[in-house]
Nucleic acid binder design. Structure first.
Length: 457
RNA sequence: GGCGCGGUGGCAGAGUGGCUAUGCAACGGAUUGCAACUCCGUGUACACCGGUUCGACUCCGGUCCGCGCCUCCA
């Protein structure tokens, strides 16, 4: 078996991944806050960790992939106040849309997709432990984590406490003992969602939910914790602090998760795509115009840790690359693919810190081979692992498939007329028919078996 | 200001101390009535300046430029 090497943000080195328990690998990735459609940047995280989970499954008997849904958050409250929709309706709706959109991008649903609101009592338990261990304190209805109580704080993002205080731009709330202290629990007004707690009716801070859900579903420590690079600080730093301190550990950052994996951002014209900048493209909208596989491949076209500058042109280019694979699969439609392992070179590229550009180079190299049942098997095996080439080639390429705006019978008739014109050497007429069909988005291919037509998008 | 990442051929994007990345586009050719599809072929790129080395795009130092985190954010 090839060693899987992953870049560990905690050590800032590519390391051979060694599971705590080789019989059961545990992966957690921070999921979305559900108050809106996911943009393509959110989708990158889902695709990257879906791929990682799939690669892990090829290597280990059992993998549990947990990715949460954050369904309690001030932005959800704001969205509810704005639209008048009930909070539960908003979170249910956008959770469903998120899962549908990610499925369209070839992501399997995580093995466990816990919701924050279902784990409030687990969060309260951790907060109580933190208070008991003097790592947290209650103040004016809030409970805060006391950062100075965790000397190792800052180890993931590589910043010292001093720097952080010096760089603090936020006004320090009066209830904080230390400017770096962060909220574990905060009070809710009557019109805000809240749960009863030892500190009054309130709701959790953001960071505590991941500490609770990862521990409940995976136990500590677990193997890999992932998320977007922007979560490194403060979210992941705070998760580490909470989870370690809740277990009385103050000097070992790996007591929570052993390996930290962070994906890079999706950019737009050189700037980070974000909801606050307004330069985002929704996965949901992009799926209207592009096949999910083309979008997935585009998200994997750069290495996952590199920034990825988004453009429609890239999606179109990757669609064309997929077309070439599908054309070959179409040529091999009559062959029964043999059972093949994922080609070694593809596996090696994936095992090298998920080097997906290299994977595609290897996939393209496969196309240099003659058509054969073995080639078909290899392409399908590799495609299955990275989440492409899962469609019927005929359908993908649009061959002879009618739809609402395409009348197959009418096209066949025109095609026959054209064939007749060609036999009569009436090329003016035959070209006219081709232009006519082209105007309807129909492309003609003359093959040894006669003319074929396909829908082009 | 602190911390971090990056600057590769038209575009996208890997990688390596000496040997073709790959894709898309472009161009030439085969095929075609003409096309499309397909196939074959073509491109001598690694920000700048020093250093190490027999040899650096790849290592080291510096310069310039871009980006990210430090505040909700995948």
């Amino acid at each position: 078996m090839l060693d899987l090497r992953l870049f560990n943000s905690l050590t800032r080195e590519k390391e051979v991944f060694t599971p705590i328990d080789p019989a059961h690998v545990k992966l957690y990735a921070c999921g979305p806050t559900v108050y809106n459609y996911a943009h393509i940047g959110n989708a990158r995280m889902a695709v990257v960790f879906d791929l990682l989970s799939k690669v892990l499954r090829t290597q280990f008997l059992k993998v549990t992939y947990v990715s949460n849904i954050t369904d309690v958050d001030d932005k959800i409250i704001a969205a509810s106040q704005e639209t008048g929709e009930a909070i539960a309706d908003i979170t249910e709706k956008y959770t469903r849309i998120y899962n549908d959109d990610m499925a369209a991008l070839g992501c399997d649903q995580p093995d466990i997709q816990p919701r924050a609101t279902a784990h409030i009592s687990d969060m309260i338990t951790i907060i109580e432990r933190l208070i008991a261990g003097e790592h947290a304190y209650a103040s004016k209805g809030h409970v805060l984590f006391h950062v100075p109580s965790f000397p190792a704080y800052g180890g993931l993002s590589g910043r010292s406490r001093d720097e952080q205080v010096a760089g603090a731009r936020v006004e320090v709330a009066s209830y904080k003992k230390d400017p770096a202290d962060f909220v574990l629990w905060k009070p809710s007004s009557d019109d805000e969602p809240g749960w009863d707690s030892p500190w009054g009716r309130g709701r959790p801070g953001w960071h505590i939910e991941c500490s609770a859900m990862s521990e409940v579903h995976l136990g500590l420590p677990f193997d890999i914790h992932g998320g977007g690079a922007d979560l490194k600080f403060p979210h992941h730093e705070n998760e580490i602090a909470q989870s370690c301190c809740a277990h009385g550990i103050t000097d070992d950052l790996t007591a929570f998760a052993k390996v930290w994996v962070h994906n890079g951002f999706v950019m737009v014209e050189g700037e980070k795509m974000s909801k606050s900048l307004g330069n985002f493209m929704l996965a949901h909208d992009l799926l209207e115009d592009h096949p999910g596989e083309a979008l997935r491949l585009t998200l994997l076209s750069a290495h996952y840790r590199q920034p990825l500058d988004w453009s429609i042109d890239k999606a179109v280019q990757n669609k064309r690359m997929l077309d070439r694979f599908y054309q070959r699969l179409e040529q091999m439609a009559e062959m029964d693919a043999t059972e093949e392992a994922v080609p070694e070179a593809v596996m090696a590229a994936l095992c090298d810190d998920l080097n997906t550009p290299q994977v595609m180079a290897e996939m393209n190299a496969l196309l240099k081979n003659e058509n054969s049942p073995a080639l078909k098997g290899k392409l399908l095996a590799a495609g299955h692992l990275i989440g492409i080439l899962q469609h019927d080639p005929q359908e993908w390429l649009g061959y002879a498939i009618g739809s609402d705006d395409v009348d197959a019978a009418k096209i066949e008739a025109l095609l026959q007329a054209r064939t007749q014109a060609r036999v009569n050497k009436d090329f003016a007429r035959s070209d006219e028919i081709r232009d006519e069909l082209a105007a309807q988005g129909i492309e003609i291919e003359d093959t040894p078996e006669g003319a074929k037509w396909k829908k082009i998008s």
